[in-house]
């Protein structure tokens, strides 16, 4: 029989996943470019107004390179982007100086939400399994089902209504500036973070519950019970390691949402994040900024899914330890 070592298999799998990720990035970049450039209306019309003369529009387009054919514009953009240069916004500022601080703001929001939501979701999921079909499980399942069904802006307004308007505990606006102190920023971020936690928690908790229950039906769990192991220990020591792969993929999906999907939440709280930047860039037809934002969102999705795949591989002893 041919000797295949586990490192070979794992290296090959990782290389495959990485290549697939790069390929997805390339396809996504094409889609973004084509989609953004086929947006109705032009930047010239947006800036110069409806009454601009055709000559003025042509001169404007030439200055921004918009008179070039689509393919050559794509190649120029791609080659610059690969080196980390997102180009210049139509408002004459480098895209990176416009986007990066906003991205950092969004990341602060996402990381704070993730640090609360992920451990909480897995803990609550495990609690559901520990008391499956009993009161704690029923309450948690019903609650999360309703938070999943509510749109995020509704949750956001609900939180504003209760915590900001009625109880007056927190500010309803989350406009933060670099000049603010840490405590000031943190207080303003509480409401949007709380909203994001509510939105992602339910999905991750239900996925954890389902993945764990799936494992709990395996014969080796019954064996652990017949060895007299207590139920909590069985869930944590025997079931969780075997469920971690499928939990990771759902967590990755939700983390990607935290980065890319926060547009609505940022809008509600007037939070200066990347979602807000993208929305205003779209309405101004500022193509380079829109492209950069879309690419960052896609990269976040692809990267996080890649990480989830790696966790799934690393948690599979059949792959890590060959015969």
């Amino acid at each position: 029989m041919q000797i295949i070592t586990s490192t070979d298999v794992v290296t090959k799998l990782l290389a495959q996943r990485l290549a697939l990720g790069l390929l997805s990035m390339f396809v996504v970049s094409v889609v973004i470019f084509v989609a953004v450039n086929s947006l109705p209306g032009s930047f010239a019309a947006a800036v110069l107004g409806q009454s601009a003369t055709p000559e003025a529009v042509a001169a404007f387009n030439q200055k921004l390179g918009l008179d070039q054919p689509l393919v050559s514009r794509y190649l120029t953009w791609l080659s610059a982007t690969v080196t980390g240069d997102f180009g210049t916004s139509f408002t004459n500022r480098p895209v990176s100086t416009m986007v990066m601080p906003r991205l950092w703001n969004s990341l602060k929001l996402a990381i704070s939400a993730a640090l609360i939501a992920v451990p909480l979701a897995i803990t609550l999921g495990a609690i559901c399994v520990r008391f499956v079909n009993r009161l704690p499980d029923r309450i948690l399942s019903a609650t999360t089902l309703s938070t999943i069904s509510l749109p995020e802006f509704f949750i956001a307004y609900l939180l504003i209504l209760v915590l900001a308007a009625k109880l007056q505990l927190l500010p309803s606006l989350s406009t933060i500036r670099g000049s603010m102190g840490f405590a000031d920023q943190a207080i303003r971020m509480i409401l949007p973070v709380l909203t994001l936690v509510f939105v992602t928690l339910a999905h991750m908790m239900r996925a954890t519950r389902a993945a764990l229950l799936n494992v709990m039906a395996q014969p080796y769990i019954e064996m652990a019970r017949l060895k007299g192991e207590p139920e909590t220990r069985i869930i944590l020591r025997h079931a969780l390691p075997n469920a971690i792969g499928s939990i990771a993929s759902v967590v990755a999906l939700n983390l990607a949402y935290l980065i890319a999907g926060v547009v609505v939440v940022e809008a509600v709280f007037v939070y200066p994040g990347i979602g807000d930047t993208m929305v205003s860039a779209v309405s101004n037809r500022d193509i380079p900024v829109v492209q950069a934002c879309a690419l960052i969102f896609s990269a976040a999705y692809i990267l996080l899914n890649l990480v989830a795949d790696i966790i799934a591989i690393a948690s599979n002893p059949r792959l890590m330890h060959a015969r």
């Binding site: 395996q218 014969p219 080796y220 019954e222 064996m223 652990a224 017949l226 060895k227 007299g228 192991e229 025997h238 390691p241 075997n242 948690s315 599979n316 002893p317 059949r318």
Partner: peptide, 18 residues
């Protein structure tokens, strides 16, 4: 597991794979 022990039919399924 201490005073009464169990040996299951399919050892392959009854050992935790991880």
């Amino acid at each position: 597991g201490v005073r009464a022990a169990y040996v299951a039919q399919s050892a392959a399924a009854s050992f935790n794979p991880s």
